[in-house]
Write a protein that binds this DNA or RNA. Structure first.
Lengths: 112, 112
DNA sequence: TAAACATATGAGCAATTGTTCATATGAATG
DNA sequence: CATTCATATGAACAATTGCTCATATGTTTA
């Protein structure tokens, strides 16, 4: 069985003091969870240079309109994309430059 | 039924040309998926200032040694943490500054 | 206002995932 | 070399998730 003995009480104490609030850590994880799906990553890259409507995203990624719409909903809920209406079509774009920054930083790490 | 009509063929074409390779996009998603769990986020924050052994991380986060070890395995596999042995204990630390940068950038977005 | 079109949404299913529990590995110590 | 300690690992289970299919909503146009 575990003894759970603390090897370095000072360090543990220090960590506990500096750890951000539970709620913030949860929100942070949720943000990254949204980035953690290749479909959503693709959709965001699709919008990297210019805005697009749902049908065109689906066409470009060879996906169902429904699947794209479902994922746009998630992106929207997390303020990663915004949209405007133009007649019957909804035109989506990246919400702010944080999205591009986060993608770029992740790319740095992936490309080594 | 869907008509799948392309509303903006030029834009679709442009997107297809500039979209990163499938494999890279997948790796990128996998990287963020690792960040997308609050337990792993907590573990990384635990290591933000100084290295720690497994038992101390478990103690600080009030988690099972096993659960922490399983997650460290995931972080290790994605090159987000590294470790060294010191006798019986394994001492973990963040692998590079990309980790801190990504966490910080995510924090920016979460804090609005 | 009825039909066509673009998008959104809900239910259901298969696949993935994080935890627990039990046990294995590997190093230090008597 | 047997025991103790720190960590790692495998199996199993519950919960979450992304897709499909069918249908609903809302806008334009004939």
């Amino acid at each position: 069985m575990d003894k759970e003995k603390i090897l370095n009480p000072d360090a543990v104490q220090r960590v506990l003091e500096e750890l951000p609030d539970e709620e913030i850590l949860y929100d942070l994880a949720e943000l990254f969870r949204v980035f953690g799906d290749s479909t959503r990553i693709k959709i965001m890259y699709t919008l990297f240079e210019s805005e697009l409507c749902v049908g065109d995203i689906a066409e470009a990624l060879n996906m169902t309109q429904s699947a794209v719409s479902h994922q746009l909903r998630v992106l929207k809920a997390n303020k990663l994309v915004k949209f405007r209406r133009s007649g019957k079509t909804m035109i989506y774009s990246l919400d702010d430059d944080h999205v591009r920054s986060i993608l770029a930083l992740g790319m740095d790490h992936v490309e080594e």
